[in-house]
C-alpha cells in the first residue's frame, strides 16, 4: 500500500518533466532520424521516402566534405591546444591556491568561457583584422610579414582554433582544478620525501592520476568543438566592404542546406552524421575508461 502510494507520487511528480522531455528532446531526435531518410523540402508538397539516398549524396558533396574536414581540424586543433595548456595552468593555479590572487587567476581564465560568443568573436575579429588588427601590427613590429588571417583557407581555420581554444580553456582548467583537489595528498608527500621536484611530481604523479579527467575533458572539448558555429559565422561575415572567408563548418553547412536550400531531409542526414561522430567519441571515452579500470 505504502509502496503503491510512493509509486503514484513518483509518477505524478515526474510526469510533467517527462512529458516536456519527450516532447522537446526525444521526439525531435527520432524525427531527425526519420527526416534523414526522406526527400523533405520545406516548400514542396511531395516528401517521398528515399532511403539512404541523402547519405550517399552527402559523401559526394564537396561542401559537406569540406565542412567535415574543417570541423574535424578545428575540433582536434582545439583539443591539442587546450588540454596541455589547461593541465599546466591548473597545476600552477593549484600550486598557488593559497595565493591572494588565486581567485583572480581562476576568474580571468574562466571569463572567456562564459562571455557571449558573439561579442567575444568580435573582439577576435578585430585582433585578426588584416589591415588594422593588432596581431598583424605585432607581427610587423617584430619584422614578420602581416598575414591574411581571415582569408587564407588554412589561416582562417587556425584563427577559429585560437578563438575556440581561448574559450574552451577556462572550462578545462576548472575541471582539472577539481581533479587536483581530489588527488591524495599523501602521495605527493611521499614523493617529496624521495626528493622528487615539482616538475617530476607533476609529470609522474599528477598527469597519470588525472588521466580519467583528461579523457573526460577531451571528449567534452571535442564534442563542443564539433558543434562550432557562431565563431565561424561572426569571424567571416559576408557583407560587402570587409570580406572574409567563410570557414564552412558542419552546423553552418547544415543550416544552409536546411534554411537556404530548403532541403530539410538532407540537412537532417548531416545532423545524423554529427550525432554519429559524437556517439563514436563517447564510446571511445567509455572504452578507454573501462580498459583503464581493468588494469
Amino acid at each position: 500500500m505504502l509502496r503503491w502510494k510512493r509509486w503514484r507520487f513518483a509518477m505524478l511528480a515526474i510526469l510533467p518533466t517527462l512529458a516536456i522531455f519527450a516532447w522537446v528532446r526525444m521526439y525531435p531526435i527520432v524525427e531527425t532520424l526519420r527526416l534523414s531518410l526522406h526527400q523533405w523540402d520545406i516548400l514542396s508538397k511531395n516528401k517521398p521516402f528515399i532511403g539512404l539516398q541523402n547519405f550517399r549524396e552527402l559523401f559526394q558533396d564537396q561542401l559537406f566534405l569540406e565542412a567535415l574536414i574543417n570541423t574535424s581540424a578545428i575540433a582536434f586543433g582545439v583539443l591539442f591546444i587546450t588540454i596541455p595548456t589547461a593541465l599546466v595552468i591548473s597545476a600552477l593555479i593549484y600550486h598557488r591556491t593559497r595565493s591572494r590572487f588565486a581567485g583572480f587567476y581562476e576568474t580571468t581564465v574562466f571569463i572567456p568561457h562564459i562571455v557571449s560568443l558573439v561579442p567575444a568573436a568580435m573582439a577576435w575579429k578585430w585582433i585578426f583584422d588584416a589591415n588594422l588588427g593588432p596581431l598583424n601590427g605585432l607581427l610587423q613590429s617584430v619584422g614578420l610579414p602581416a598575414q591574411p588571417w581571415l582569408f587564407d583557407p588554412v589561416l582562417s581555420v587556425i584563427a577559429i582554433i585560437i578563438l575556440c581554444s581561448w574559450q574552451a580553456l577556462g572550462y578545462a582548467v576548472l575541471i582539472y582544478l577539481v581533479g587536483f583537489k581530489n588527488l591524495p595528498v599523501s602521495l605527493f608527500e611521499a614523493a617529496k620525501l624521495d626528493g622528487a621536484g615539482g616538475i617530476a611530481r607533476f609529470w609522474y604523479i599528477s598527469v597519470p592520476m588525472l588521466k580519467p579527467i583528461t579523457l573526460y575533458v577531451s571528449v567534452v572539448t571535442l564534442i563542443s568543438a564539433f558543434n562550432v558555429y557562431a565563431q565561424a559565422f561572426v569571424l567571416a561575415s559576408d557583407s560587402q566592404g570587409a570580406p572574409g572567408r567563410q570557414v564552412r563548418v558542419l552546423v553552418l553547412d547544415m543550416l544552409e542546406n536546411a534554411f537556404r536550400n530548403y532541403r530539410i531531409g538532407y540537412a537532417a542526414a548531416e545532423a545524423v552524421i554529427l550525432l554519429a561522430i559524437v556517439l563514436l567519441l563517447t564510446l571511445v571515452q567509455f572504452g578507454l575508461l573501462r580498459e583503464k579500470g581493468r588494469r
Binding site: W23, V24, R25, M26, Y27, P28, I29, E31, T32, L35, I223, F226, N227, Y229, V251, M254, A258, I264, A267, A268, A271, V272, L274, L275, V278, L279, T282
Partner: peptide, 17 residues
C-alpha cells in the same frame, strides 16, 4: 543516453514543432 546528443542535431525538427 540523450544527454550526449548535441542540440544542433535535433534543432531542425524542433524548429518545426
Amino acid at each position: 543516453a540523450t544527454a550526449i546528443v548535441p542540440f544542433e542535431v535535433y534543432m531542425i525538427p524542433l524548429y518545426f514543432q
